[in-house]
Design a protein around this nucleic acid. Structure first.
Length: 680
DNA sequence: GAACTCATGAGAGTTACAGC
DNA sequence: GCTGTAACTCTCATGAGTTC
C-alpha cells in the first residue's frame, strides 16, 4: 500500500518572492559612447542553463564580436518581455546606434555594415542594409526562452564581451560564468581556486572548434588565445588551465582553476542595516575630500564575508555571512590610519612604499576616483595582502590602539580645518560680491539682493506667471547666472545627499517654504514656467522622507519610514532634489520639465518596489517581530522551517495511520468582552 | 596505431586611412 | 557619417613528421 500523501510544508525559499534578476549598471547611460560603456560596464543576469548551453558555440563562423551582439539582443529581448520571453521566440526592432557602441570595445567604432554581417552570421536570413541611425530587425530563436526560465544566475559583463577579441575567449567566458553560477561559487578572501574540469571533447564544443577535437590544435588555436584573452580583459576572476592525462599520456580533460577577484564597488549589493549601525558616520565626519558614504560601507559589508561568523562550507547553498557592523568600523579605522600615514608621511609599515593604495598613491587615487572608490580599492588590497591590519591589530599591542586613536584625532582636525576653510571662502566670496550676503534670520521678502539675469526683482508674485515656452525656459536655464545658481543648489543639497535620513526632508521643506524663492530666484521662475513640477518633486521628497503623524505624535524630528534604505535615500535626493543641478551647470538642460517628470515617475516606481519588498520581508519575519529587538527562538525556528508548525499533534485514523490532529475548537467568541457579574 | 606538434596556405575578418 | 580599399591579423583546415 502506498504511503499516504503527506503535504509538505512550503520551504522558506518557496515562500519567498522569486528573485527578480535585473541589469547592473545604467544601460541607457552606458550606450552614450564606447568610453561610457566601458566605465558603466553593464552586467546582465543569465541563467546557468542558458550559459552552459552550446547551441551558440555551434553557430558557424561565429566571432567574439558576434557573441557581444548576441548578448545585447538577448538583453533587449528580456527588457521587452520582463514577465518572461514568449515560448516561440521574440521579434525585435532595435536602433543600430546603441548596439554599435556595445560592440565597439576595441577602440574603433564598429560600422553598421559590420553589424549587418554579424546579424547574418548569428541569425541567418537576408542581409539588412544599415546606417547608424537605422532600426534593424532581429529574432531571438525559440530555443532561448526555455533556457532563461528562473534558476541560478550568473552575471555577464557586456563591456568584457565587447573587449574580448577571440571567439574562444568569449565562449569560454560565458561557460565559466555559467559553471560558477551552477556551482554557487561566491567570493571568499583567501579561498582556494574553484576548479572547473571539462573533458577534451566537451571543451572543443565549448570553444566552438569543429570536430575532430584533438588536444594539439585545440590548445594552440583555441585554448591558449582564449586564456590570454580572458587574462587581459576579464575583471571578475582570473583563470589558469591544467591538462589532465591518463596513464598512457592521452589527454582526458582540462582543469580550469578560477579565482574570483574581490567584488567591485559598482557590482556589490546594498542591504538593509539599522540606521543606528551607521549613524556613527554622520556623527564623525571627515573633510569632504575623504568623507565616506554610508552606502559604501553597507556595500562593503555585503561584499566581504564576515571573519567572525562561521561561514557556510564550500559548495553549501547558503550565502556567505556578511561582515558585521563592528568589522566595517574596523575597516574604517584602518582607512583613517592609512590616510593619516599618507598625509603626514609617518610610515607605519613597509607597504607604504610598495602597496598600490598607500602613501601618495592613495592620495592620488582619492583625487582621481573619489574617496569611496579609493577606500574600496584600499580594503580589497588589504584583503588580498594583509599588511596594515597586521600592524594595527588592536589585540596585539597597545601601540596599535594609540596609532588608531591618533588617526581618529587627525580626522577631527581635518574636518574642523575644512569647515573653517569653507567658512573663510564663503566670507571672502561675499566680501567680493560673487555670492549674495548672508540671509537674515527673519528674511524680508521685498529686499532680496540676489541679482537676477533677466528681471532684477524676484519677490514671490501673488499670481502664477503664465507658462513660458520651452525655448524661453531653456534660454533662462542656459545663462551663466543660472549655471552659478545650479552649482549653488547642488552644494545646497550636499548635506542631504551625504546624510539623507537627517537632512533630506528638512532641506526639501526649507526650499519649498522660502529658500527656493529667496536663494534660487532663477530656479524659482523656471519652476513657475514648468507648472511647479520641481516644487511637486520637493513635496514628494518631503512627504516620502517624513511620514505623516497622528495628532499626539511629536513633529520635531524627521520620522523616516523603515523601508527607506541608504541606497533608496540617495536615489530620492538625487532624483527629486538635485535633478536639474548638473544638466543646468553643464548647459545641457534641453527638456527640464520632462526630466523632472521622468525622475518623479522613476522614483515612484522605486518607492513602490522598496515598500513592497519591505512589507514582504516583515511578513516573513513573523507576526511578533519588532524592529531592533532580537527575535525569539520560536520566531527564528519558524523562519528556518518556512512557517511550518514546530510541534504537530497527531492522532491515528481508522486505518492506524498517524494524521495531523484537527485544530482544537476555538474558544467561545469574546467572553471577556462582557465580564460575568461577580455575584455569579 | 593513436595522438600529438609543427608548418603552411587560403580565406575571412579587422583595422586604418583617404575621400566624399 | 559613410564608402572603398589595402594591409594586416586571425581562424581554420590540412598534411608531414614525431612521440608515446
Amino acid at each position: 500500500m502506498p504511503a499516504s500523501p503527506k503535504p509538505s510544508a512550503p520551504s522558506a525559499r518557496a515562500r519567498r518572492a522569486p528573485f527578480v534578476p535585473s541589469v547592473r549598471g545604467d544601460l541607457e547611460a552606458a550606450v552614450a559612447s564606447a568610453e561610457a560603456f566601458a566605465a558603466v560596464a553593464p552586467s546582465v543576469p543569465r541563467t546557468a542553463a542558458y550559459l552552459l548551453d552550446r547551441r551558440l558555440c555551434a553557430v558557424p563562423r561565429i566571432g567574439a564580436r558576434d557573441v557581444a551582439l548576441w548578448e545585447w539582443l538577448v538583453t533587449q529581448a528580456v527588457a521587452a518581455h520582463p514577465e518572461g520571453l514568449p515560448a516561440d521566440g521574440v521579434e525585435l526592432a532595435l536602433p543600430a546606434r546603441p548596439v554599435l557602441v556595445a560592440m565597439s570595445g576595441h577602440g574603433r567604432p564598429v560600422q553598421p555594415r559590420e553589424l549587418a554581417d554579424s546579424l547574418v552570421r548569428l541569425l541567418g536570413g537576408e542581409r539588412q542594409e544599415l546606417r547608424i541611425g537605422d532600426v534593424f530587425r532581429a529574432s531571438i530563436p525559440s530555443w532561448v526562452p526555455p533556457l532563461l526560465r528562473p534558476g541560478l544566475y550568473g552575471y555577464l559583463d557586456l563591456a568584457v564581451l565587447a573587449r574580448l577579441t577571440t571567439k574562444g575567449g568569449s565562449l569560454l567566458y560565458r561557460h565559466l560564468v555559467g559553471r560558477l553560477a551552477a556551482d554557487r561559487v561566491r567570493y571568499l578572501p583567501n579561498a582556494p581556486p574553484h576548479v572547473v574540469t571539462i573533458p577534451v571533447a566537451e571543451l572543443g564544443e565549448v570553444l566552438g572548434m569543429p570536430a575532430p577535437h584533438r588536444m594539439g590544435p585545440l590548445r594552440a588555436r583555441y585554448l591558449k588565445p582564449a586564456l590570454a584573452d580572458l587574462a587581459d580583459h576579464v575583471t571578475a576572476f582570473t583563470v589558469t588551465a591544467e591538462e589532465a592525462k591518463d596513464e598512457r599520456g592521452r589527454n582526458l580533460a582540462v582543469g580550469f582553476s578560477v579565482s574570483l577577484r574581490p567584488p567591485e564597488m559598482r557590482t556589490a549589493a546594498a542591504r538593509l542595516l539599522p540606521a543606528e549601525d551607521l549613524s556613527f558616520l554622520q556623527a564623525h565626519p571627515d573633510a569632504p575630500d575623504f568623507q565616506l558614504r554610508a552606502s559604501t560601507l553597507i556595500k562593503l559589508g555585503s561584499a566581504l564575508p564576515s571573519r567572525r561568523v562561521t561561514q557556510p562550507r564550500p559548495g553549501s547553498r547558503r550565502r556567505p555571512e556578511a561582515a558585521l557592523a563592528s568589522e566595517l568600523h574596523a575597516w574604517r579605522r584602518l582607512w583613517l590610519a592609512a590616510l593619516d600615514e599618507a598625509i603626514t608621511g609617518a610610515v607605519l609599515t613597509p607597504g607604504y612604499e610598495t602597496a598600490s593604495y598607500r602613501g601618495q598613491r592613495l592620495l592620488d587615487a582619492i583625487e582621481r576616483d573619489g574617496a569611496d572608490a579609493a577606500f574600496w580599492a584600499f580594503v580589497m588590497a588589504e584583503v588580498d595582502a594583509p599588511d596594515l591590519q597586521v600592524r594595527l591589530d588592536t589585540g596585539a599591542s597597545d601601540e596599535a590602539i594609540r596609532l588608531l586613536a591618533a588617526a581618529e584625532r587627525a580626522r577631527v582636525l581635518r574636518f574642523r580645518e575644512g569647515r573653517a576653510e569653507r567658512r573663510r571662502a564663503l566670507r571672502h566670496a561675499r566680501a567680493e560680491g560673487t555670492l549674495p550676503p548672508a540671509l537674515p534670520k527673519m528674511p524680508k521678502a521685498d529686499s532680496s539682493p540676489m541679482p537676477a539675469p533677466v528681471t532684477p526683482t524676484v519677490a514671490p508674485e501673488p499670481a502664477p506667471a503664465p507658462p513660458v515656452p520651452d525655448a524661453a525656459l531653456v534660454a533662462l536655464l542656459s545663462t551663466d547666472e543660472a549655471k552659478a545658481e545650479a552649482k549653488k543648489l547642488w552644494w545646497y543639497w550636499q548635506p542631504a545627499f551625504e546624510f539623507p535620513r537627517m537632512h533630506a526632508a528638512p532641506k526639501a521643506k526649507l526650499l519649498l517654504d522660502e529658500d527656493l524663492d529667496l536663494q534660487f530666484p532663477i530656479f524659482s521662475r523656471a519652476d513657475q514656467a514648468m507648472g511647479g513640477e520641481y516644487r511637486a518633486n520637493l513635496a514628494k521628497l518631503a512627504e516620502t522622507f517624513d511620514m505623516p503623524r497622528q495628532r499626539h505624535e511629536g513633529r520635531v524630528a524627521t520620522r523616516v519610514p523603515d523601508w527607506i534604505d541608504a541606497d533608496l535615500a540617495e536615489v530620492l535626493v538625487t532624483f527629486l532634489g538635485m535633478t536639474l543641478t548638473v544638466p543646468v551647470q553643464n548647459g545641457v538642460a534641453t527638456d527640464p520639465r520632462g526630466a523632472l517628470l521622468r525622475d518623479r515617475a522613476f522614483v515612484r516606481e522605486r518607492v513602490r518596489k522598496a515598500r513592497a519588498e519591505w512589507r514582504e520581508r516583515v511578513a516573513r519575519r513573523g507576526d511578533a517581530y519588532v524592529r531592533g529587538k532580537p527575535r525569539t527562538f520560536e520566531q527564528v525556528q519558524r523562519e528556518i522551517y518556512g512557517g511550518a508548525p514546530l510541534f504537530v499533534a497527531t492522532v491515528k485514523d481508522r486505518d492506524g495511520f498517524n494524521r495531523v490532529a484537527p485544530p482544537p475548537p476555538l474558544p467561545p467568541a469574546q467572553p471577556e468582552a462582557m465580564p460575568p457579574a461577580k455575584s455569579e
